[in-house]
Write a protein that binds this DNA or RNA. Sequence first.
DNA 1: ATATATTAAGACCTTTTTATCTTTTATATG
DNA 2: CATATAAAAGATAAAAAGGTCTTAATATAT
Lengths: 152, 152
Amino acid sequence: MMLSRASKYAILSTLFLAEHSSETHKISVKVIAESIDVPNPFLAKLFQQLVRGKIISSTKGPNGGFYLTKKNGKRTVLDIIENIDGLTRLNECFLGLSECDGANPCPVHFIVEPFKNGILGKFRDLTIMEFSKEITSQGRKLTLKDITPEFK
Amino acid sequence: MMLSRASKYAILSTLFLAEHSSETHKISVKVIAESIDVPNPFLAKLFQQLVRGKIISSTKGPNGGFYLTKKNGKRTVLDIIENIDGLTRLNECFLGLSECDGANPCPVHFIVEPFKNGILGKFRDLTIMEFSKEITSQGRKLTLKDITPEFK
DNA sequence: ATATATTAAGACCTTTTTATCTTTTATATG
DNA sequence: CATATAAAAGATAAAAAGGTCTTAATATAT
Ligand code: FES
Ligand code: FES
């Protein structure tokens, strides 16, 4: 029931691409890594895998970089997680029991279940583009940086 | 927002003690480890720490073992987690952002928050003994073993 | 064509988590 | 008091996760 750090980075940076990139405006790992404050070479690795998984796109060379095509934007956040972590992590019992279902619930199963359904539903049913729109419309942020309060 | 395996083992085995042990009936690591299917020496280490944290009790020698005193039974599941993992893990943002609060919510914050409050509340407000009663009354199980269906 | 920018690929390193092993210490019981 | 039994302590090992570095491939602009 938890994401690896890798998945988290992948989600944030893909959402970043959704918001800031296009086929005519590609972005380099370096810029993204700095923007969302994630280790550069680690993100590069993740991006390679996301490209192989056809979740994001890339071109090499000058003015190259990473971006989302229309088609990429129709993938889901769950696709990202599946690509990086696989799906088992998300379905695991919160206390680590071998199965997680209502038939053999662990002590916290019925607290966890509604949450799991809620978050899984959202990750499964919204496209990356829709998800991204929801974020920008709500003015949420996509960085791991500390938000330094502005005193001015 | 996730527990380490160590915490999970600790929770399960403490609940096991709540259900099966008493000051007059102590249980060895070996028995517990086999019952809930957890690596024996690893659990032994965890138990040492839980004893130091006064969450469970132990005596050495013949007929020794681990058990809960009345006082132990009044601790909470959150105490177990705090003792093993610390509290930061539980409070972390689901996407790994630096702060998790309503003022600077991440894209999934408002899905995660009610769950977090629910589970944290339960872990904080019920004693281990209460928690355990709730479990036994509902016939839930405390093992990591595969539940082999009984065909008889 | 060539230089350059940028990703791709793979080997490698570090840290954290999980797990084991060995020795010491305490204690109940005969 | 001797012995057996079980936990405590500490050293070590194995595995997984996270992170880095170096070299190759490739697309673009000049
Ligand atoms: S969360 Fe434990 S069985 Fe579902
Ligand atoms: S879960 Fe991400 S900010 Fe609260």
